[in-house]
Design a protein around this nucleic acid. Structure first.
Lengths: 233, 233
DNA sequence: CGCATATTTGAAGCCCATCAAGCGAAGTGG
DNA sequence: CCACTTCGCTTGATGGGCTTCAAATATGCG
């Protein structure tokens, strides 16, 4: 179950430099009086918030991985974004709208809950926060555009190869990389069925393109995957 | 060909109240010295900028309609957003990245070109601009999420019905609505082929759901289309 | 009018979803 | 320790939805 661990301390926060608060002057962190975010933990699959709820708080992920999911009335779902440590999400309240998606942890997670009213005040005191947020949004919009190309213009194998590349890219494709998404979740993200995802992964394992052991993956031939992915540039 | 019509005058701009500059105090508009955006016109299909170019300017659309398009190396394309009068676009330079897409007019257009350096300075003077921009981005991110659901979780007919509904919604479905997109462009937007788009539109015309005359469309039965669209909430 | 372009319609085939069954690893209880 | 369940993954078979290819028809424009 969800659980409030206590009040957050920006000054000692391990992921602050990853967050939109990275540029806050270190000296000022103690004088932030009214901003007391709560640190909360959630179990895997326990929603941080649900699509349609009134959006009173934004969140910064401190640990773990979250999927933002939209659900259609008929039950079909689409993962619209994956949230990693340092990412912030749930800002719909800033434009007076309810959450546009549900935030569902992929594993046990820890978040910092930011009441929008307080964040708004803090943002006025420290314009660098708004600048940092703006940059994040531009980046997210770019990623959303990229994802639309994946979903709209690519075939199943291309989407999957592209996803694996993007997932493993940060490590330079070296060694075994944690892949905490089930086949079904990868499918939800790429607009495919679990069977299609499984078939291609199995194929590629047989062909020696990738290998997998206990939730970890290793790209043996990134170049050939890249070619399959139909990458741009 | 593209053409610079002259310097923009925020004070007399007809679409300013639609733009991110809506909240600028009317009195201050004359004292903005260093911000002299150019008004430019472009012909249909004449790119305002291309994917991959260095992003030195953002733009606000004054008149017409623009598609933001991403192209894969193999030539497949995806429209990632439609730009209407009052919308701003092309902010990639704010994070030091080249344009992530090409901006291609769907008809003759008129834009206001905003050099990023000047916009940055203006933004510092007038924090309300940044707030306005932030709200736009949140909105665009929501729309991008919605689009990902369309592309990832819906069938051809659902995507098309949903698109027609969204296009005609602002008018309350009354009367004939301008539809300046070709079948091919609708396909590019929805991740479908021109033939698939044409087939469903023809079907729906025969069934009396919609009618069309010289680039205008009229939804005769929005409820049944809505049902076809698989809409959320 | 005559040409170019957009749209419609048909036919064939492929990609992927769907349905169904089997496999394997982890956990439970007798 | 082993039957039994459970759950995620794999694999096969089938069908349908959409793409692709092709050609006819409609539309617009000089």
């Amino acid at each position: 179950m969800s659980n409030i661990k206590g009040k957050g301390q920006c000054r000692t926060c391990a992921i602050r430099q990853l967050s939109i608060f990275a540029l806050l002057p270190e000296a000022n962190l103690t004088e932030i009086q009214h901003f007391q975010p709560s640190i909360m933990t959630f179990a895997s699959n326990e929603a941080v918030y649900h699509q349609g709820e009134v959006a009173t708080c934004a969140y910064t992920l401190r640990q773990g991985l979250i999927r933002l999911v939209k659900t259609l009335p008929n039950g079909r779902t689409q993962i619209v974004r994956l949230i990693r440590a340092g990412d912030s999400f749930g800002f719909d309240g800033f434009i007076g709208e309810p959450y546009n998606h549900s935030a569902i942890p992929l594993c046990e997670i820890e978040v910092c809950r930011l009441p929008l009213a307080e964040l708004l005040a803090l943002k006025r005191q420290h314009p660098e926060i708004e600048s940092a947020m703006m940059k994040r949004w531009i980046q997210h919009l770019r990623e959303a555009e990229d994802m639309m190309v994946e979903l709209g213009a690519k075939k199943a194998s291309e989407r999957l190869a592209s996803f694996l590349i993007r997932w493993c890219e940060p490590t330079g494709f070296n060694g075994w990389i944690e892949l905490p998404l089930s086949r079904g979740e990868i499918g939800e993200l790429l607009g495919l069925t679990i069977e299609t995802v499984s078939r291609f992964i199995s194929d590629w394992k047989r062909q020696g393109l990738i290998e997998e052991r206990q939730g970890r993956i290793h790209l043996l031939d990134p170049e050939r995957l890249q070619a399959l992915a139909c990458v741009d540039d």
